[in-house]
Design a protein around this nucleic acid. Sequence first.
DNA 1: ATAAACGGACAGTACTACTATCCAAAGAAG
DNA 2: CTTCTTTGGATAGTAGTACTGTCCGTTTAT
Lengths: 217, 217
Amino acid sequence: MRVGELSRRSGVSLASIKYYLREGLLPPGERTSPNQATYDEGHVHRLRMVRALIDVGGLTVAATRDVLAAVDDPEVPLYVALGRASGTTMDPGDQDETQDETWAAAERTLAAAVDERGWAVSDENPAWHTAVGVLATYARLGDDDLSAQLGLYMRAMEEVAEREVAAVVDRGDRARTVEGVVVGTVLGDTLLAAVRRLAQQHCSLRLLGETPLRPRG
Amino acid sequence: MRVGELSRRSGVSLASIKYYLREGLLPPGERTSPNQATYDEGHVHRLRMVRALIDVGGLTVAATRDVLAAVDDPEVPLYVALGRASGTTMDPGDQDETQDETWAAAERTLAAAVDERGWAVSDENPAWHTAVGVLATYARLGDDDLSAQLGLYMRAMEEVAEREVAAVVDRGDRARTVEGVVVGTVLGDTLLAAVRRLAQQHCSLRLLGETPLRPRG
DNA sequence: ATAAACGGACAGTACTACTATCCAAAGAAG
DNA sequence: CTTCTTTGGATAGTAGTACTGTCCGTTTAT
């Protein structure tokens, strides 16, 4: 199939396909002549992935490129790509932010919670840095209820992660498995956030009899 | 205090403070003369909120403005503001997307899961639309493991939301309470996602003996 | 009295994600 | 075989976001 059909099949504009090709999100088609190429079902699927990651997962084009590179290349560690995938990674470039007492206290809080749960995680995981950043920010805002919920969040996420990891084991070829992990992680973030909003609506209705903070639309 | 000090105290540049004032994220200071104003602790706190929502929560300036407007004005329903706060709200403007069979099937899946859990939620909650969108996207990608995890996600988020709502009841004045809800919801999304990544690392290490998908950095 | 700070307006910048135009070569249709 | 459309590739332009810089006429501190 040629680009025109690829565009029609995927619903992505020709101009955008050319853009994704340039940016390395979509692998080049197979050459049939020095300046002509054909595309296959893999390209259609890849375009669907790209749109899902960008539109639903909220990734940037650059983050999508990195994540998909990790899917393709077994050499790129997946957690590095998934780290970049979390939009709010609070890049460790902000040295001044990480060098104060609030930050250190937040890091101790997280380390203690992780130890208590018996988690084996490394502080090289970008998520560690993000979590510490959120805790520190919350502390600076004065209310520290969030860090009080940390244990709860960890318990809930451990249960979720356990099932997710179990579901991913023995899935056939490596590419398919990694793709499943990526999509599940990125789209899962969005779904979890949405489900949390729904649960909050249900719980505030149940616990308060009515919902003073969120009147029915 | 005047802007100079406000800038020093909050760590936000003068130019950005002027920008936030223009955009309505920061209320104007109290006038001391036709073209002079003073600012108080409330402004320092507000600036910290703004930076937290933008830098840590990943909100846009416009979303931050809406969310803070809901904190200030009891007339604006909170769930509307928090809906806009979820970056990936998949605005209901995409009529074509919502009019196909995949979308309808995803909506039935969610409705069934919600009924089974006995949740009282309305499909006017923006999160409903987001959740359906994620489910539909996942279905279009071919793997439907995510919707298989839906029940698990709902159980986990119900437990989380229950504690969160309980923690927020009886908190003093309305403004403080609403602020707590907003910060907890927005920063909570980021924290939950980070904790999930950490849990995934722990679980893949525990269940697989080692971590083939995410070699240690 | 003089220098610094202020408010307000507005132009400019860097980045992101496309979108449009142009061209020469390749394919398809009559 | 010619004409029309499509393609690949390069490059320029656009719209939106989040600032940043500059100017100007007060205003306030020293």
